[in-house]
Design a protein around this nucleic acid. Structure first.
Length: 767
RNA sequence: UGCGAGGUAGUGCAACCGGCACCACGCCUGGCUCUGAACCAGGAAAUCCGGGUUCGAAUCCUGGCCUCGCAGCCA
């Protein structure tokens, strides 16, 4: 189920143009400093999904460049989670540290080429020299050190001669770049630190901006997909690959970095730091606490990989930062479990019901299928039934509200898969209902005797046969939708009811000995999983994965309050310099432009706005002047203002073959009605490309406007005949289709049909 | 503030070259039902704002507004 997102669009384009010689290769590059969470799952599904789709194996590569923060515990859990999600990265994961030798060699190359230098500034000095968002940085005093000296120093760094923090290796790019990432970024820092894989071999470690592009290039990655916050790093990514020549060295095309929006979810947090805090401060039982958005937590909660992958599919991939409604995840989980979880009976808070009409000691074996008919799966189990049964307290009401479909005094309900029973008597103690006495309706299993009025269906277990279970009811971790946006500590908004342990639950005997990790639906209650950690023979522990959807609006609890506290970050930014100002400045510098602005509106009948746009630079204005010979100046101006920029793309006017006289001729032809607007745009595109003469193109291709009723009517009839269904919809009131018909006719004429004539004829035919 | 990215129903995501605003979750109605589930049918609900180009603008031009990211020897 390949969804077409913007990344796959890029890949398709690259495949068409042969950019990477037909190869597609992606990677997932986690830093082993925490457990994977649902946000990573989105990225994993994206990268591995693309790999699967294009038949290439996706690399799992650990970005292990900072030994101080990383741990083998995480590399193991990450591999386990990726495999559990259903993805294959081969026998071995890869490691950035495997490329340390080559990275170092390339660093020496950079130094030799004068593109990197060793800087002895302190951390504070480096920050200071870097400047700020508004001021450019200043060169470090060490920036122009001799190549030989840099080389010697770099080798001393590598040899471990220098203590931590004495110096760093920096790329020599541009200290005044407006993109801060380009202000001589750090490549290597000294860290006398033991590394899990390279041991004590290296006292220096590369930084992300250096290690990451090199790792991608070495592995022959074609599309390096990362999150939005790395957009500013892309020029640096490209710089490293270009100036080290690493791709060429390995015989690969250069990888392309593409950024997408990371996943955010309601009612939870996603940053590793905050998750770690929840674990360390004991707000949850560990990384795999079922309330955690970690893969491990969701697994223990009972989410299956299928559900997580479906979720990744559902939310799509885009460049807009957005927060996904956690209900979508729950939908995917239910949708998945609905197909696979056998249905069984269990009561959370038992209320004893004695069936006075049922003989003491008599047990009947009822049977119930594991799946409802629409799932279409086989299997059934027996359910013992006796004089004493247990139902859920929630299924009885002394004073039932309107529409209540459960048990109440005098009412009759169906016991799921069993008899109908009627509540005869309520046993109360201290004003509390402690038990019920009821009678069964004879011969009501599988049928309803005439005259019996059944209020609803209720789940139950036999008191004598049921097995006890500990049930853990999980709910969202936070009580507010955006815990990270509040002013204070995130722990202040933790949901106090995110875990409720129900000790006295009773489930049907078939659940005795259920396998840890197995999924069940307790009918009318929810989906549950047998806890993989705490459940053992003789002690059944069930985690509620997700509730059943509940569409009963009768007494539905009020929806969680939508706390809106967006003011926290609603600081308004000062306005930035607009393009108007740039044009105004240009006119200040160049009196010719200023004169043009002053003179042209009255001289040529231009609007102030068009005049402004035409006089921001010389070439645009020159083009205008050269073009107005044959055509009306205002029309030429409109064309330059509206049609030139999209035709230009990133090019400068001077880089195209477009000339003023040719443009004038085109506009004149259009004004004279010789050609239509759409045709003019096509011709214009070609003029920009090749410098063709518009008259020649029009004549040679026969692009003259068609206004002849008969010719157009023929096309109209053809279009209406080919879209009979749409015509019916139109007659039925869908008038928005009018534009569709007009568009089809104009396309049918290759854009040559006079639009007014088309409109008139379509209108005639349709009425 | 310099630079970069972005703004389509409540939510998420589409609409290649200007021509039917798509789909899904959620919500509301109804149907079916021995799960108030599932399933089926129907419905309400959106192009950030202003101006312009065009027969026609979510899409092109233009002005504005709003949001996010960048000043770690983190990634």
């Amino acid at each position: 189920m390949a969804t077409g997102d913007f990344i796959r669009d890029i890949i398709e384009d690259d495949l068409r143009t042969g950019k990477h010689a037909g190869r597609v290769k992606t990677r997932f590059p986690p830093e082993p400093n925490g457990y994977l969470h649902i946000g990573h799952a989105k990225s994993i599904c994206l990268n591995f999904g693309i790999g699967d789709q294009y038949g290439s194996r996706t690399n799992l590569r650990f970005d292990d460049t900072n030994p101080a923060k990383e741990d083998v515990e995480y590399v193991e859990s990450i591999q386990h989670d990726v495999r559990w999600l259903g993805f294959d990265f081969g026998e071995q994961a890869l490691y950035a540290s495997d490329y340390f030798d080559e990275m170092y060699e390339l660093a020496e190359d950079l130094v030799r080429a004068g593109k990197a230098y060793v800087d002895h500034c302190s951390e504070d000095e480096i920050r200071d020299y870097r400047g700020s968002l508004r001021e450019p940085g200043r060169p470090s005093p060490y920036r122009d050190r001799a190549v030989e000296e840099n080389l010697t120093l770099l080798r001393r760094m590598r040899d471990g001669d220098l203590p931590d923090g004495t110096c760093v290796l920096r790329a020599r790019i541009d200290m005044s770049a407006s993109n801060m990432k380009l202000r001589d970024p750090l490549l290597y820092r000294i860290r006398h630190e033991h590394h899990d894989r390279t041991g004590d071999a290296w006292p220096i470690y590369p930084l992300y901006d250096y290690a990451h592009p090199l790792s991608d290039a070495i592995e022959g990655i074609t599309h390096s997909i990362c999150t939005l916050e790395f957009e500013n790093n892309r020029p640096l990514y490209d710089w490293v690959i270009e100036h080290t020549g690493v791709s060429e060295r390995h015989g690969f095309s250069r990888p392309q970095q593409i950024e997408f929006a990371r996943l955010k979810l309601d009612y939870t947090v996603m940053s590793k730091r905050k998750l770690l805090l929840l674990v360390e401060d004991g707000h949850v039982s560990g990384w795999d606490d079922p309330r955690m958005p970690t893969i491990a937590g969701m697994r223990r909660r009972g989410y299956r990989p299928e559900a997580i992958r479906a979720f990744a599919d559902l939310i799509g991939v885009a460049k807009v930062n957005s927060t996904v409604d956690i209900g979508k995840l729950e939908f995917c989980v239910r949708d998945d479990l609905n197909q696979v979880a056998p249905r069984v009976l269990g009561v959370l808070r038992p209320l004893k019901v004695t069936l006075t009409s049922w003989p003491e000691g008599e047990v009947e074996e009822l049977t119930g299928p594991y799946f409802p008919a629409d799932i279409g799966k086989p299997g059934e189990r027996t359910i013992p039934f006796g004089r004493e049964i247990l139902i859920d307290r929630d299924d009885f009401s002394l004073d039932p509200p309107a529409g209540y479909q459960r048990l109440a005094p005098g009412r009759t309900v169906r016991l799921r898969h069993g008899y109908a029973i009627t509540c005869d008597e309520v046993v109360e103690e201290d004003g509390e209902v402690v038990a019920l006495r009821a009678s069964h309706v004879p011969d009501s299993v599988g049928k309803t005797p005439a005259g019996v009025d059944i209020s609803g269906v209720v789940h139950w277990v036999s008191a004598a046969h049921a097995v006890p279970a500990e049930v853990r009811l999980y709910d969202r971790l936070f009580s507010v939708p955006r815990p990270e946006e509040g002013a204070g500590d995130i722990t202040e908004t933790l949901n106090p009811d995110s875990l409720e342990v129900v000790g006295g639950a009773m489930v049907e005997p078939s659940l005795d000995g259920a396998k840890p990790g197995s999924h069940w639906q307790l009918e009318r209650v929810g989906y549950f999983v047998v806890d993989a950690v705490d459940s053992e023979p003789g002690r059944l522990v069930l985690n509620r994965t997700v509730t059943l959807r509940d569409s009963w609006t009768g007494t539905a609890e009020a929806p969680a309050p939508q706390v809106q506290e967006k003011s926290a970050k609603a600081k308004t930014r000062p306005p930035k310099k607009s393009r108007v100002e740039y044009r105004a400045e240009a006119r200040l510098r160049d009196p010719v432009l200023a004169d043009r602005l002053a003179a042209w509106p009255s001289a040529y009948g231009l609007s102030e706005e068009d005049a402004d746009l035409l006089t921001g630079d010389r070439p645009t204005g020159d083009l205008f002047v050269e073009a107005i010979g044959a055509a009306t100046p205002a029309a030429v101006a409109r064309w330059i203002v509206n049609e030139l920029p999209p035709a230009l793309g990133d090019r400068e006017l001077a880089d195209t073959a477009l000339t003023g006289p040719a443009l004038g001729a085109l506009v004149a032809a259009m004004e004279a009605g010789e050609i239509t607007g759409p045709v003019a745009k096509d011709v214009f595109a070609e003029m920009v490309e090749t410098g063709a003469d518009p008259r020649t193109v029009i004549a040679e291709r026969g692009l003259a406007q068609v206004s002849d009723d008969a010719a157009i009517a023929a096309i109209v009839d053809g279009v209406l005949a080919a879209n009979a269904g749409k015509v019916d919809e139109y007659s039925a009131g869908k008038t928005a289709l009018f534009g569709f018909f007009v568009g089809q006719v104009i396309k049918g004429s290759q854009g040559k049909a006079n639009p007014q004539v088309v409109q008139r004829l379509v209108r005639d035919r349709l009425s």
